[in-house]
Amino acid sequence: MKRHSWMYIAFGVLWLSLVLAVASMGQAWRGKGRVKGVVTDTEGKPLEGVTVRLWHVESEAGFETKTNKKGEWTAAFIRGGQWNIDFELPGYVTRKITVALKELGPNEEIRIQLQKAPTAAPAVPPELLDKVDEGNRLFSEGKYAEALAVFEKLVQDYPNARVLHFNIGNCYAQMGQFDKAIQHYEMSMEAHPNKDEVWIAIGSAHLQLRQFDKAVQALEHVSLEKIEDPNLLYDLGNAYFAANQLDKAIPAFERAVQLKADFTDALYMLGTAYIGKGEKAKAREVLQKYLQYDSTSDRAKEVQLMLRSLK
């Protein structure tokens, strides 16, 4: 009996070890770091209940949290390295970013704006309006799969209502299926009365897939003045900057700052682009404006060094 008891104990210890090992694998993102952020709409109003999904690239593990009434969120005890972070809220366009975070020392606060997701379907035959309204209502409630079913049934029954492919694309985009979203946006292009809106949606979806070349190709169909999302303009500017197309990056960053004066990320990149162009006076002006909104972070210290080098 004693031998059997020891066997049970040994088996129990082994089982517990396996459970702990699996649990530790699921929390491989844990470390000593910390990062916090704020999520607002495009008017600067805080958004509560935004799901913030954090994924540590190296450990292939992550977790999620939500914003409070002030739009604030915090992620504590995290490892350093590259993180993919998604921000999701029903009725808003999902935002995806990739950032490098430090485990030791402070990380910059991450400030994100979410844009309202388009819902209306233009130029729809009158006899379909009730069903379209039903689909739009479901979409605004965050019931994207149900809204998708409504719009797909309408397109199946009324093939000439091709404009509704735009609504289908919006549903797929909110569900994170950006490849399918792009397909349906393109199918709506001929029937959609606002081609700029379609190109912006296509470009935004390509950016979410990190297909920067294709995003640029789509967004170049639209004048920058037609783009009202500062985050989209910032991403477009970064795509141009990465391709060393500073003449195109600068107007995109300028437009982003025009829409959101305290957009420090855009101000920083705009100043950096001006330095790359050798336009020191404009770089100084932009970087000094940056310090009006951020004078204490690690990046602010970097900006101060940049300004000294421009004297």
Rank of each mutant, 00 (worst) to 15 (best):
F253E: 04
G276M: 13
W15S: 14
K2M: 13
V39N: 12
A261F: 00
V257S: 06
L148V: 01
S5W: 14
R284M: 14
L267I: 01
K66L: 13
L16T: 10
C171H: 03
T40N: 12
E88N: 11
V57G: 02
L128F: 01
T65N: 01
L233N: 09
Q174A: 08
G271T: 02
Y274Q: 07
W15I: 14
E141Q: 14
K180L: 11
F263N: 02
I110R: 11
S204I: 00
Q174E: 06
A28D: 12
E58R: 09
I78T: 09
A145E: 14
E134N: 02
A273Q: 01
A266E: 07
N170T: 05
E48Q: 14
E197M: 04
A266Y: 03
F263M: 09
N194M: 03
M1T: 14
A239Q: 06
G37M: 12
A256I: 02
D133K: 15
M7Y: 05
N244E: 15
S17I: 09
A120T: 07
P126M: 02
G278N: 04
K45I: 11
D157I: 01
P193E: 01
G37Y: 12
K289A: 12
G33A: 11
I112E: 12
H221R: 12
H4E: 15
I168R: 02
A191I: 03
V52L: 13
V257L: 05
E225I: 04
K32H: 13
I112K: 13
A100V: 07
A256W: 06
I202R: 07
N194H: 04
A147Q: 10
K45D: 12
V19E: 14
W55S: 09
Y268H: 05
E186V: 02
A205D: 09
I9R: 08
Y172K: 02
A261C: 00
H56I: 09
L270A: 05
A173S: 04
V286N: 06
M7W: 11
S204M: 04
K102D: 14
W15E: 07
H206M: 08
A252Q: 07
V19L: 15
T94F: 00
S188L: 01
E109W: 00
T65E: 09
E109R: 15
F241K: 12
Q245I: 02
N194R: 05
N194A: 10
E220C: 08
K226W: 07
Y8V: 15
A242M: 12
E72F: 05
L47R: 04
A76S: 15
V50H: 07
Y158K: 15
L148T: 02
R111Y: 11
F63H: 10
F11P: 00
Q292G: 09
D247K: 04
K131D: 05
